[in-house]
Simulated assay, not measured.
Amino acid sequence: MEGAGGEASLDVQGAAAAAAPSLFGHKPNSAKPVSALLEEAAQLKTEGNAFYKDKNIRSAIGRYHRALLLLRSIDSDVTTSVKGFGPETPVLTPEQEALLRNTQVDCYNNLAACLLQRKTVDYTRVQEYSLRVLKWRPGNAKALYRAGVATLEMGDAETAKEYLIQASKEQPNGKDPDHHDLSEQVDVIVI
Score class of each variant (00 low, 15 high):
residue 5 G to L: 02
residue 6 G to T: 08
residue 9 S to L: 10
residue 10 L to F: 10
residue 12 V to G: 02
residue 15 A to M: 11
residue 15 A to W: 03
residue 15 A to S: 11
residue 18 A to S: 14
residue 30 S to E: 15
residue 30 S to V: 15
residue 37 L to R: 15
residue 40 E to T: 11
residue 44 L to W: 05
residue 49 N to A: 00
residue 52 Y to L: 08
residue 55 K to G: 00
residue 58 R to W: 03
residue 58 R to F: 00
residue 60 A to P: 05
residue 62 G to H: 12
residue 65 H to N: 15
residue 70 L to S: 08
residue 71 L to P: 00
residue 72 R to T: 08
residue 72 R to C: 03
residue 76 S to N: 10
residue 78 V to L: 06
residue 78 V to T: 11
residue 82 V to P: 06
residue 84 G to E: 03
residue 88 E to W: 07
residue 98 A to N: 14
residue 100 L to C: 03
residue 108 Y to Q: 07
residue 112 A to I: 04
residue 113 A to W: 01
residue 116 L to A: 06
residue 119 K to H: 05
residue 121 V to T: 14
residue 121 V to A: 08
residue 121 V to W: 06
residue 132 R to K: 15
residue 133 V to A: 09
residue 133 V to S: 05
residue 133 V to C: 08
residue 137 R to D: 15
residue 142 K to Y: 05
residue 148 G to M: 04
residue 148 G to C: 04
residue 150 A to E: 03
residue 156 D to C: 00
residue 159 T to I: 08
residue 161 K to S: 07
residue 164 L to Y: 06
residue 166 Q to M: 02
residue 168 S to T: 04
residue 172 P to Q: 07
residue 176 D to H: 01
residue 180 H to K: 14
residue 184 E to P: 01
residue 184 E to M: 09
residue 187 D to V: 02
residue 188 V to G: 07
residue 188 V to Y: 11
